[in-house]
Design a binder for these strands. Sequence first.
DNA 1: ACGTTAACGGACGCCCCCGTCCGTTTTGGC
DNA 2: GCCAAAACGGACGGGGGCGTCCGTTAACGT
Lengths: 211, 211
Amino acid sequence: MTDHLSRIPRSDAVDNRERILEAARVLFATEGLNVPLREVARRAEVGPATLYRHFPTKEILATEAFAEQMRTCHAVVDEGLADPDPWRGFCSVIEKICELHSRDRGFTAAFVSAFPKAVDFIADRDYALKAIAELAGRAKDTGKLRPDFVLDDLILMLMANNGIQAASAAAQVAASRRFAALVIQAFRAGPAQAPLPPVARLALVMPGVTR
Amino acid sequence: MTDHLSRIPRSDAVDNRERILEAARVLFATEGLNVPLREVARRAEVGPATLYRHFPTKEILATEAFAEQMRTCHAVVDEGLADPDPWRGFCSVIEKICELHSRDRGFTAAFVSAFPKAVDFIADRDYALKAIAELAGRAKDTGKLRPDFVLDDLILMLMANNGIQAASAAAQVAASRRFAALVIQAFRAGPAQAPLPPVARLALVMPGVTR
DNA sequence: ACGTTAACGGACGCCCCCGTCCGTTTTGGC
DNA sequence: GCCAAAACGGACGGGGGCGTCCGTTAACGT
């Protein structure tokens, strides 16, 4: 029996792989997750078969393409956790996450979607969410974050932020910035605020990715 | 020259027309504006040609199908305007509009979209928006609505509300309700609130309707 | 340099949606 | 009841995305 260990990949293969990922990053960010995979292949100057060989499903491609964004996400929440003022850290996380997501239309879709297979992607996401929950807990203790805040409210805001459509990339970021400021206002604890309606079960669905 | 006045339509024609509209209402509400027109035709038990004969474009079909929702919209804002307490009226408008839009996925898309041809639809929408602006002005005067509120913030909120995805129709409404409560919190005037980032030019684009 | 073999990509068949044509059916006036 | 006109709907051709096959190309070891 021959050696079945992972062989070193050929140079053109890794080259194509990287070009595909780069193309996917750009297109997912600007057009969203619904871009035809062939368009990604075209931009990468690669045949369709090559793309499918490297990334059998759009899900796999997306998770790999968004790995960097996910790292940024982690950095943002870590930064927030490191802030001595939890509320300020919480606010900065919301602002930065909103901006991050507004710059990358596809990433939000991926972030709030239920990838059945992408185990590590989901793990990463859940780790970030856990960290935010921890930060939120501390912020509540300072009395600046409203006590009835729930982690699902953050998901709600991310989904909502994703619904915003602006005329240009710059306008998109600007709109998200204003939205984030409003959201922070909504989350701030205030005197005599009415109780919030109950939390609803949000649906993490992936748009246009059947396979 | 023969009489070119509008002739009375045939009975089966008006019947089909109504069934198509009903089917469109249901499908647009549950699936959004992207449902294939053939599916509408199927549900209406009508051939594709019949649908196209009555409603040459999806835009026309949508505007006619949403006429009722638009009337509800008007009723809601009128009700809000009638409230002696402008802020309370403003809040009720937000709550009801959010619920209305959460129940009808397609209507929001139509509402925040740029139909180039649907003159009266746009006129209706703008009338409702004007009325809300009027209401907002009064609410500002009472000091309960933050002075830097802009009408675009409402559009922003509608778009955002449209981004929310829940597990079921009921959950969708529940999520929107909570969202609306948070939004109201964000709009409420408070002591020493930070100035909002500038307004961005929002894009009213119709998803998946090229013709 | 050369042969092996991994990797490539053009091309194919499939399915779904679109908008229209035209032969057939139904309606309503006489 | 009859007939012209209005309305219907099955069927067609076009276009686009999808996933795969297979003949060709080019990288790497010797």
